[in-house]
């Protein structure tokens, strides 16, 4: 059984009387250690799919198992816990909290698990070092470059040792060099055994993944590399 098991996932958006069928019987399996890119143009339903995979939205029918846990019938509380423990999010716009410093941003998932700031700091030292943020931990996000901010976001995603890293257009807001650096980092993380699911509209970015699936009009077409 894969880390992610999606079968016959459907999603509708209701606009008055009309229902918009955004995801149509989507089935997908991601194995542990996989590095998958979901490629699709805007409006194809890829963000909706990512929200469902990331447990931030629920499907209208179909089954979803994440790391062995049933997600499709989980309650909000459960989803919150799963997000905290199983998923590491990396967003296009970094989504760091501007009032907290780098360290606080990174360890936030650990604080939510009940660790103290000190414990969380000790726990995350290795990752901070690995991402070259050791001398930046007292800085505010606004004092960092885009590439550095994305590395902070990646550190935050990694710190809770999630089952999957879920990256939504991780290079979208970065200049070319920073983008390449992030993709190299992903490669390294994958080599270390992390499972990565990346969503992008950019084939050039998607090609860094081991595997690409295309989504068009809510339907998945598997495309092996």
């Amino acid at each position: 059984m894969g880390i992610i098991e999606l079968s016959n996932i459907n999603k509708y958006y209701y606009m008055g009387e009309n229902a918009l069928h955004v995801l149509k019987d989507v089935s997908l399996t991601v194995e542990k250690g996989d590095y998958l890119a979901i490629l699709g143009p805007s409006g194809s339903g890829k963000s909706t799919l990512m929200n469902i995979i990331g447990c931030m939205d629920v499907s209208d029918g179909g089954e979803y198992y994440l790391d062995g846990e049933s997600v499709h019938n989980a309650k909000e509380e459960e989803l919150t816990r799963i997000r905290n423990e199983k998923i590491g999010f990396i967003f296009q716009k970094y989504h760091l909290i501007p009032t907290y410093n780098v360290l606080q941003n990174i360890v936030m998932p650990l604080l939510m698990r009940g660790l103290t700031l000190k414990e969380a700091h000790e726990h995350s030292m290795e990752i901070i070092h690995m991402l070259g943020l050791s001398d930046r931990i007292e800085h505010k996000p606004s004092e960092l470059s885009g590439g550095q901010q994305q590395r902070v976001a990646i550190a935050r995603a990694l710190v809770g040792e999630p089952a999957i890293l879920l990256a939504d257009e991780p290079t979208g807001a970065l200049d070319k060099n920073s983008g390449i650096e992030v993709l190299k980092l992903f490669q390294r993380l994958n080599d270390m055994g992390n499972t990565i699911v990346m969503i992008t509209h950019d084939l050039g970015v998607a090609e860094h993944a081991k595997r690409i699936v295309k989504i068009v009009d809510g339907e998945l077409t598997i495309q092996e590399k």
């Binding site: 990331g54 931030m56 909000e76 509380e77 919150t80 816990r81 799963i82 997000r83 905290n84 423990e85 999010f89 989504h95 760091l96 909290i97 501007p98 936030m108 998932p109 939510m112 935050r156 809770g160």
Partner: peptide, 16 residues
């Protein structure tokens, strides 16, 4: 709102 969204995404509970 955005910050609340981030907190929720990384697993902050409604209670917190």
């Amino acid at each position: 709102t955005n910050e609340i969204g981030i907190l929720k995404a990384i697993g902050c509970s409604q209670k917190n």
